[in-house]
Design a protein around this nucleic acid. Sequence first.
RNA 1: GUGCCCGUAGCUCAGCUGGAUAGAGCGCGGGGCUCCGGACCCCGAGGUCGGGGGUUCGAAUCCCCCCGGGCACACCA
Length: 578
Amino acid sequence: MKEILIKALRSALGELPEGTKVEKPKEEAHGDLATNVAFLLARKLRKPPHEIARELASRLSESPYFKSVEAVKGFINVRFSEELLKEEFSRLILEGGHYFKQDLGKGERVQLEFVSANPTGPLHLGHGRGAAVGDALARIMSFLGWRVEREYYVNDAGRQVYLLGLSVYYRYLELCPSRDERLFEQVKQRFEQDGYRGEYVKELAGRLYGLIGDALCGSGDLKRVKELLLERESLPLYYLKRYEQKSPEELCADYALDLMLKEIKEDLKLMGVEFDRWFSERSLYDEGLVDEVIELLKKKGFVYEKDGALWLATSRFGDDKDRVLRRSDGSYTYFASDVAYHYQKARRGYDRVIDVWGADHHGYVPRVRAALKMLGLPDGWLEVLLVQMVRLFRKGQEVKMSKRTGSFVPLRELLNEVGPDAVRFTFLTKRSDTPLDFDVELVKEKSSENPVFYVQYAHARISGILREFKKHEGELPTYEQLAQAVRNLTDEEGLKLIKEALFFKDELAEAALRREPHRVTYYLIELASAFHPYYNRHRILGAPTRELALARLALVTGLREVFRLGLNLLGVTAPERM
RNA sequence: GUGCCCGUAGCUCAGCUGGAUAGAGCGCGGGGCUCCGGACCCCGAGGUCGGGGGUUCGAAUCCCCCCGGGCACACCA
């Protein structure tokens, strides 16, 4: 819709001045669209804005696209002509959701990395938010012409993974009657310092014990362990491949990783989120990429040694201080693998990379950006979308979440109780950089009052109308017939609905360009809250004349396309009945 | 202490690359189909947009200061 006005302005003015805006006015009285060009031209033309506006308005009013063009206090307010609206809407009926396609991405290859939670525990609410936002954005962007790849970065290396292994090992030993007590005490001590205390660790240990019995209780017969696992467990066993020189802790870690990752994949699948690629951090080490990138940075002169550690001079590119790549004990930091990871992404040839991170990682942004700059990547190449924390409430009481202490609400629990649609939609009713208070009880109890149902209901209701028509007449009109029938729509409110529906195109574009999927959510709620009153006031099938009935049928058919596409892009189902 | 995010109706939040009279849902009070789906609709009450300065034709929106909350500030992630 905006495009139509912009084109008209261009043909009247040529190049539009910097800062030209076309927007939907808040006030309906100010037309369908308004523009500020007159203000911007005032200085250059040395004429008062209202005068320019008046001249421009009279020129624009010649266009058949507009019913009216008014100049008010310097603004130019236009209203689309009925013919244009109906014509566009006919196209929408004929083309379906495809009508809203636009090639904004121009085939740009963009990688979207999101969730990427450590596989050291089940996904919780915060991860769910990241999943909802990342996936919706992926859907929206790929609909609008970007070539999007979804990726999950698996942190399967490093200290956290070791601690997971340690924790499982400890819980496992607890279960062993024949354990070596001295060994147990030693493990216990380490566990009590840094271990993961969640219930799920006990479950992992219990399952392991069920599989391998006492095999790891003493000095540990690793070969026997592996045989038992292979024999009895149907896991991907990706991590258990090279077990020979591993410690019991490492073996436990690998077992836990396989299992956790499987769980995580199931959680996400339950939510309707699928990734194109699960990228293993370990593989970066295995393939020598960490060393390679450090070597490269060394050559460029950004790496130095101090206190036995290897540092990257990130402060030269906007970071607060330099960062360690390799500790004095020879181990690598997560930062090192992260740099390698992004280096690897760059080598894959993406035009752009979008990382969706939890806001608690925001301090991390400058150092990664600095490293990318050193590697010669352009400034805008990496976009980081920070998703704010989800604060969890139960009956008005905040529940502090921590994997270590094991107190958190698993995503799975919420998905089971509330349903994926409500969960996803709820996460997308907030701008992602606003912290979100999530009262579990409230969402559970109020589930029927959740706005998601309001929107889905609109879709189901229309579907019901179509069913009804079919029941009486045997068959629905063809899309061609409906596209024609739109012309006979006479009521003012129906035309307003048509207009609202067509504006989806602009809202979608905005959502994609600004990386703000929640705009789609709000749009849909608004469209639904325009549709429901209409339904209540106007009979569709029972309209005074058959002509009008068909026209209204065409109207709701087009609306249904919008609801269906919109919900779809949010990853929410559009049910035929509820 | 330093940096980032947030502060809008009783609650949860939109609106923020400046635009015309600040919105929605929930909650609260009152009402509505003999009819295509009542998970709906209609009416109402409810605001110093945290506070104060500044920028300009115009500020919830941009800048500065202050207050309040969150997060981050490791050779942890």
